[in-house]
Each structure stands twice: as C-alpha cells, then as structure tokens.
Design a protein around this nucleic acid. Structure first.
Length: 599
RNA sequence: GCCCCCGUAGCUCAAUGGACAGAGCGACAGCCUUCUAAGCUGCAGGUUGUGGGUUCGAGUCCCGCCGGGGGCGCCA
C-alpha cells in the first residue's frame, strides 16, 4: 500500500487511495463470463458493483477499511473521503516527536543515512581569460547547492572545478597583452580579472573581419592574426617566454575565480585544469583507434573521428559522428572530456559523475558518455549532465567576446549597496560594526536564491531589480524568518539551550492551525532533502525553504509566544520556534545562503 | 533534414500519474502603543497552446499539429 501525505492544511496525516484496487476489481468482474455470474446467488449485487463507477467503489472500499481499523497508537482519527483513506496523527504526540528530533539533531536534522556511494559534482568551469559573469555564477551556485544536497542526503561528495586555461581565447588575451599592454598590471584581484576581459574584447575587435575593409586594414588584421597563430604555435612548442606569459595571466584569472568562490563559500576538493588533461588525452586517441572505436582518417588528410551511432548499432542518427583529434594532431573539448572522465573513474573511483554544464552542450556530453560506454566504462551509465538554461540579458545573449556581459562582482557590489541603503529604515537592530557583513549575507542571499528558485532547464533573462528584490518569494524573506525566530529566542534567553532546558516538553494543548502547519513543514524537511538530491534539483529545496519561512511568518504573526501566560504552552512554543529556526538554517545552508541572526 | 528543451493567471515561475492547478510580482482593501512591517490578512485573476490516445484518474505519459528557444565531425 502506498501512503502519501494528506494535502490538507490545518491537520496532518497520511493517506492511501483505493482507485487502483477498485479499477482492478472492475476489470475482473467484467472479464468473468456472464454464465458464471448467473450461477452466483448474489449476481445482481455483483452487477451493481461492476456498474458502480470506480471513484464510488473506491470510496466504498475506503469506508470498509476504515470500519475495520480500531484505535491505533498515535492516531487521532481515520477518515474515508473521495476514495482516500486518511489517517490523522494525534497532534500532540506528533508535534512533540518532530520538535524533539530537530532539537536533538540540530545542524544534522534532515541528514540522510550514508549511502555508500561516491558522487563527483563538476561545476565552475570558466575560461581563464576573463572575469566571472552572472552566467558562471548560476553554474557555480547550482553546482554548489547540488553538492551540498547530495552530501547532506548521504552521498560521499567530491566537488570538482574544471577551469579552461587553454585554447584560442586564452592565447588571444595573451597576444593582446604582449602587443599593447605589456608591463601593465592593475591592482586588485577583480580589477585585474575585469581588465583581462577588456583586453579580450579589444583583441576581438582587432581580429574580427569587418565589412568594407580597406586593403590596409585587411593587411593589418591578417598580420595580427598571424601573430596570434604564431603565439599559439610557440605555446604548443613549449616556448619558455610564452609559457611564462601564460602562467602569469592564468594566475591573475584563477585568483579572481578563487575570490568569487570564497565569496560564494565554495570549497573545491579537486581542480582539473584543461592544460593538464591535454597531453594525456592524446594517448587516449591512440587507444580508441587501436580498439577499433575511432577511425583514423589522417592518412586521407582528415581527422580522427568516432562514428558513434554506427558503433552503437543505431540505425537512426542520434549521437552522430564526432571528431576527437584535429587533422593537425591537436585535441578538442571532447578529447579532453574523455581523458577527464577516465581520471574520475580510475583515480577517484566515482560511482556517479554529475556535470553541471550549460544545456547547449547537451549533445557533446551525450556523445562523450556514449564513447565512454563504447570504451567499456560501466560508469558511463552513471554519468549525468545537469543542463541548465543560460542566463541572457534583456538586450540579448551575453557575449564575452563582445564584452556584453553582466559581471558577478558588479551585481554583488550593487546588492550590498542596495541592502545598506534600506538597512537604516528596515532594521534597527543591526549593530554598526556588523552592517557590512549582514549586508553581504542578505545581498548575496537575494542573488543566489533568485537563481536557485527557477528550475534548471529554464533560461533566465537577468533583471537586476528582480534578482535583488528583497520582498516576497526571495532569499531575504527566508532569512527574515530566521531572524525573527532568533529574536524571540534571544528575548526569552533560551537561545543556546537544548530542548531539555525548557523542562519536560509537551504539546498537550489545543494547537492552532499555524502551529500545526509549521510543524508539518518542519517534518517534511528530511524527505525534501532526499527528493532534491535524487532529482538533482536545488529548486525543490528552494521551494521548501520558502514554504517553511511562509509557515513561520504566519505563525509569528498569529501566535504569541513570549506573551503566553501558561508556562507549559510558552515553553512548547519556544521549542517550536527553536526547531523552526534550526530547520530554516539547515535549508538555507543547503542553498548556499547564509542565515543571519539579525537584519 | 535530424535531435533536445519549453508552452500553466497581465508578468516571472511552481505542482512524486491522484483530492480544489498553487506562489510571488503587479492591482485593489486592510494591519505597526503587542516577540523585527524585508512581515501578515483579505480580494481579483485559469478552457494548463491545440487535436487525438493510454488510464479508474492527465498540466504531468504517448502520437499529430501550431508557436518559441537551443543544438547538429576538426569552437568550447
């Protein structure tokens, strides 16, 4: 029998339906030969049952079962309604169980049992040529929330970053620097990152073919292009000065990435650099040729390719054919991803490998997974591409090449500014010395939540006013619930105390619907953790955090706590507030959002 | 041409095949001498793009159509 929560507010319990049973019965009755029925004494009644619509019969069954159930421990009543059997819990016992569990487990409330499975989440893969924009931020936040969820749900989790520190884009910035900006170096980690982006944009203007070029312009552009190609060649050949230039500019970019990760409270376990998988991936190409998976067309002046559909025996085109080694012997994105997967499987022994990558790369990753399967890696089945919609601007797609991007750091700074601007009017309780820190937590909370509160596959048109809204279904709304709970506890002076310190806890009084709704939300947290982790969807947790905060705000408004005269009820409510505060904090933590005590 | 994703309230988005499709924003009307008003309460807003099918039951699964977006061997 499958039990689900009763979707009613105000009272909680579990329910099961009888539709399936009723439908099955109807099938059996109608399948039985009529002659057999005629022999039955009560065939008329059977005919009635047969004709009875399924919902009505299901209701009948529910009522029957209800009649057979006596009184059950912890259950207040059983109802049969609309084909469902509803079992309502005895409120006081259930409430006490939930609150006790939260206050006993604290930060571990909701943590799933160890699953004995190792998961690697790969995210934060920006190129090392420019500053982190808001699209990278979505990627990072999504990956981090997912990692926190899988970890808390009981999976051993490894966080991996895969910065693209190689390729034409990187060379382009190096060329621009060498030619026009040599010796310059802005101070400040982010200033330097943004400056690299500026160089990249300028270089692309110089290198891009324009309409109606004069012969001089064409010659100039081609000369630049030749220089860039030469630099790429020198890099490949291991030229000392070019390598040094590469090392220095790369470091500037990585320092900025590190700082963004610090701001977002992301601690990577493993760093895979594109430059480090480049060489090993060439050996893989040879192996794939030897195994008959890849076809070497170089003798005919072609590349090394894998005819994926053909090798898999598919007749319809699905994965198509892809190149794994250019005709000039250099590697591609796909080549390196194959090498990286091998490392993940063999060195880190991951059972599941999650790639948090833009949905536009879906085909490429599917191709990579298919080749891994051909290659004989059983883990290929456990590779999962968590695609997410891209972040665009009202004026169109973001383009690093054209410099049409919204930088993460700009939005972050703006967020802090806006919080500080409203802090004086909205909150009087923030100590002067903590204003900046609290403003960071709230500003970032708004930004992060706005990106997680949308399902992965949705594109986001970035609107800064929407992303930094502090009202309604937002990060600050949830943070505020945490703050209000904290405020009550602080005034009651039990904040740091354990549930036991409140005396024997009992909810043996008539609970208001707001208290019951709040307890119901709290009790759902562990299941939501599992759901969000299993479905790879931080949105589930974002939604839950809002619902929980919403239940708390309503409770806060309608139910007095400190003013309660009955000491027992007051203590029960205080413990409920403590449980709510803890659960909100746990949920926010999984969303990579800070839970301030004041705001 | 082939593949993938999406279409739900004016807007932005939710909804393990189950009960009455829910929130926020925006609009309107209330609530601060009561634990923080970044809040609460009320009101309004829907033929879930469309036509079939499967099912006791479809926003959800299958097929067709319409509309939007993305991708498709030497970019990443």
């Amino acid at each position: 029998m499958k039990w689900t929560a009763i979707p009613f507010a105000g009272e909680w319990g579990i329910a099961t339906s009888f539709f399936q049973t009723a439908a099955d019965e109807a099938r059996v009755l109608s399948a039985r030969p009529a002659v057999e029925l005629r022999d039955e004494q009560r065939d008329e009644r059977r005919d009635d049952q047969k004709r009875k619509p399924v919902p009505a019969r299901a209701q009948e069954m529910a009522e029957q079962v209800k009649g057979q159930i006596g009184s059950v421990e912890g259950v207040s009543r059983v109802d049969a309604v609309k084909g469902y059997l509803n079992v309502y819990y005895r409120t006081s016992e259930y409430a006490q169980r939930v609150v006790d569990e939260v206050l006993a487990s604290r930060a571990d409330f909701g943590r799933g049992a160890a699953k004995g499975e190792r998961v690697m989440v790969e995210y934060a893969q920006p190129n090392t040529l420019h500053s982190i924009h808001i699209g990278h931020a979505r990627n990072t936040v999504l990956g981090e929330a997912l990692a926190r969820l899988t970890e808390f749900a009981g999976f051993e989790t490894i966080r991996a970053s895969y910065p693209g520190d190689l390729g034409l884009g990187v060379i382009t910035v190096m060329w621009m620097y060498e030619k026009f900006y040599k010796g310059q170096e802005p101070q400040g980690v982010h200033e330097r990152g943004q400056w690299l982006l500026k160089l990249y944009v300028e270089a692309n203007v110089l290198l891009e073919k324009k309409e109606n070029e004069t012969p001089e312009q064409t010659a100039q552009r081609e000369a630049y292009e030749a220089e860039r190609r030469e630099m790429y060649r020198k890099y490949d050949a291991g030229d000392a000065s070019v390598r040094e230039l590469w090392r220095v500019t790369r470091e500037w970019a990585l320092e900025e990435l590190q700082d963004v990760l610090r701001i977002l409270d992301v601690k990577m376990d493993v760093w895979f650099y594109e430059s480090e998988v480049d060489e090993p991936s060439k050996a893989i190409v040879e192996e794939l040729i030897a195994k008959g998976i890849a076809d070497d067309e170089r003798p005919q002046g072609g590349a090394v390719i894998v005819k994926i559909d053909e090798k898999l025996g598919l007749t319809k085109e699905k994965y198509r054919t892809n190149v794994i080694l250019r005709r000039d012997g250099t590697t591609l994105y796909l080549t390196k991803d194959l090498a990286l997967a091998k490392v993940k499987f063999e060195k880190y022994h991951v059972d599941r490998s999650i790639y948090v990558v833009d949905v536009r790369q879906s085909l490429h990753l599917q191709q990579a997974f298919a080749i891994l399967k051909l290659w004989g890696f059983p883990q290929a089945e456990k590779c999962y591409h968590l695609g997410y919609g891209f972040v665009s601007l009202p004026e169109g797609a973001m383009s690093s090449r054209r410099g049409r991007v919204v930088l993460f750091k700009e939005v972050y700074d703006e967020a802090i500014k806006r919080v500080l601007a409203v802090e004086s009017e909205r909150s009087g309780n923030v100590p002067e010395g903590e204003r900046e820190e609290i403003a960071k937590q709230i500003g970032l909370g708004a930004l992060v939540y706005s990106m997680l509160a949308v399902d992965n596959n949705k594109d986001i048109v970035f609107d800064i006013n929407e992303a930094l809204s502090f009202d309604g279904r937002t990060g600050p709304y949830i943070q505020n619930a945490h703050v209000r709970a904290n405020s009550i506890l602080k005034k009651s002076k039990v904040e740091s105390q354990k549930s036991g310190d409140l005396g024997p806890l009992t909810f043996d009084y008539e609970l208001t619907k707001h208290e019951i709704e709040l307890i119901e939300q709290i009790s759902q947290f562990p299941a939501k953790v599992q759901q969000a982790a299993n479905e790879y969807r931080p949105l589930v947790m974002a939604q839950f955090a809002y619902d929980l905060a919403n239940a708390f705000h309503s409770f806060y408004h309608a139910v007095p706590v400190l003013q309660t005269e009955d000491e027992k009820i007051k203590n029960a409510r205080l413990s409920l507030v403590a449980a709510a505060k803890q659960t909100i904090a746990n949920a926010l933590r999984l969303l990579d959002v800070q839970a301030p005590d004041v705001m």
